[in-house]
Design a protein around this nucleic acid. Structure first.
Lengths: 336, 336
DNA sequence: GTATACCAGCTAAACGTTTCGCTGAGTATG
DNA sequence: CATACTCAGCGAAACGTTTAGCTGGTATAC
């Protein structure tokens, strides 16, 4: 690969002049400029971004660390983030912590070594597990979707309590009272809030869910399948389920199908965060949806601002509001 | 951020010694080693990968350039590639060309500037559009899924002709004769091969598809929807469709649903490359599937080998065989 | 004609690492 | 005791850029 020195030699100028031409950072006479340009052309020279970044102490890289790349929700996040990141002039490095705090730790240290300029992180560990977010040592970080009670960090989250409340109220409005849940892990605030929202919504109507109708999943299809299968085998199974995310809802659907139960006739299902495939497949899930694109845009806006302006601004904690999207996975209760 | 010099000063040794300790690249006496380690600890030092990479002329980055990040097939590719890439000690930078040759061009030049060590590319342009793959100037590249007749490049592809043949034969076996196709763009070999495979399979049974039953899509849901809607409105609509990819199959499903047609009762659908959601949703598409994980692993094996050993090995062109996966989107023909 | 101002272009240092080659002390060999 | 050898550790160059500061020539002002 040709270097700036080769170009300088070829054009019989100094490297400073070549640099000035490349970056338009100083006036260069037309004659010299032409010589430089033709030398660049002749040698097929392209400036080394690696060297530039090294010089400037940046990398033009933004890391996206998600909890589970196999989850369509995070696939969409990758899609949205790639678009925004490249619009801001960065490139997106993608990591998958696979819901494992150990992986996340390894990834974060790799992110630091790579010198990524910023990190968009869907955290999977509990709070204490994180290295102190000393801005001297860590690149700017924005937490996405999940957060902990660290008020000194930028976060972009969903009002999970409200999402669960919306979904549960819909079931209550349909007359359901025996409502169960495949919940999210309770060591995450996401899981706690969604469960609390559901229980609060029921309590507001004077209903209490049966403990055996509330089970925790791990956000994944497989475990939701087993847990739902177990729960729905029981004779006193719930007539409706609030499932804490879309992927688990698919697992529940599969369990239903295996048990010969129909949705929505036998069981109504509502979930949160679903990214349904395009229409045509049945049933379409009734769900609360994250405004994913807006959330992603906002997160990257915060991140880029932090990268460019440091700690001048107080931490931003943006909470988005979910909306209920009706599908056909719910039917009125038949048991009063 | 502390640098190696700070550590050296703190430990009262030379930077060379610190480097030796970090990299275990030379013997260092226990005493000095201890001093260095505690200095590293005290300063919270982590070596700058940027500087290292600059020094070594590499970046530890592998670029993945896909044709459409919104397509679940490529989402799965991201998932598989991330896992393999990180197992090889690299990090994955993701780009989305969005099926646009212009974007791809921009992306490739960015990839070069970033100094990525290798590129896994799903090409979207036609052949001539590509910069000469002069190994002096371009990082090692492996073409994935699509290719062109450049026998001097590493490629990993699917036997598209066979995929279409498998799918079409299944429809023929069910008695269908009025078979149509929502095909892939014919400027890509993928599109040409899939269409040819379908037509050849039909020809082998003495059937010829009607021209108006063959329409090209662009791999996306939206266009497949419109095209299918148009085609299926006609009174002489086909009784079965071979759809060239999974995302388009979903578009077709939506069109069916809008037109009040049922699958498989009114129309049978087979597709290629589908990544169906987990079971439970109906109908499950009958499809040929790519051995995606194996393909991805193989592609990265080729790429890493090329990165590490240069051009010593002749180009590898690995072709994988698709397999037919039965769902419930097909029914026997009712019209003989 | 001298002093001043301007400006195009150059020189060289700096960024954080790795690594080649050197030094000098200690040890073995004769 | 002198020479050779070993080897822990050091100094400094090199990687490809950017950029602060300098130089020397030309134009302007008096």
């Amino acid at each position: 690969m040709a270097t700036i020195k080769d170009v300088a030699r070829e054009a019989e100028v100094s490297t400073a002049t070549v640099s000035a031409v490349i970056n338009d950072s100083a006036y260069v006479s037309p004659a010299l400029r032409a010589r430089v340009l033709s030398a660049i052309d002749a040698l097929g020279y392209a400036p080394s971004q690696v060297a530039r970044n090294f010089k400037h102490g940046r990398s033009q890289l933004i890391a996206l660390v998600v909890a589970d790349l196999a989850n369509p929700f995070y696939s969409r996040l990758v899609w949205a983030a790639e678009a925004d990141v490249s619009a801001w002039g960065y490139s997106l490095v993608v990591f998958n912590s696979d819901e494992k705090p150990d992986n996340e730790k390894r990834i974060l240290s790799r992110v630091r070594m790579l010198g990524c300029d910023g990190v968009l992180l869907v955290p999977v560990g509990d709070e204490d597990h994180y290295p102190v977010r000393d801005t001297r040592r860590w690149p700017p970080t924005v937490l996405y979707g999940r957060s902990f009670n660290r008020d000194n960090m930028d976060t972009v989250t969903l009002d999970n309590h409200e999402a669960a409340r919306l979904a549960t109220n819909y079931l209550l409005d349909l007359g359901h009272r025996r409502i169960g849940s495949i919940a999210a892990p309770t060591h995450l605030n996401t899981g706690r809030d969604r469960l609390a929202g559901m229980i609060d919504a029921m309590a507001a109507r004077g209903v209490t869910p049966r403990p055996e109708h509330i089970r925790s999943g791990d956000f994944r299809e497989q475990m939701a399948y087993s847990v739902a299968r177990e729960m729905l085998k029981q004779p006193d199974r719930p007539s409706a389920l609030y499932v804490a995310n879309g992927l688990m809802a698919l697992g529940v659907m599969r369990a239903l199908s295996d048990l010969g139960l129909r949705c929505p006739e036998d069981i109504s299902i509502v979930s949160t965060d679903t990214v349904s495939g395009p229409g045509g497949l049945r049933p379409q899930l009734t769900r609360t949806e994250h405004p994913l694109e807006e959330m992603t845009y906002e997160a990257l806006r915060l991140l880029v601002d932090r990268i460019q302006h440091g700690n001048s601004r107080p931490p931003g904690n943006v909470v988005f509001t979910p909306s209920l999207v009706l599908g056909d996975s719910c039917a009125p209760a038949t048991d009063g």
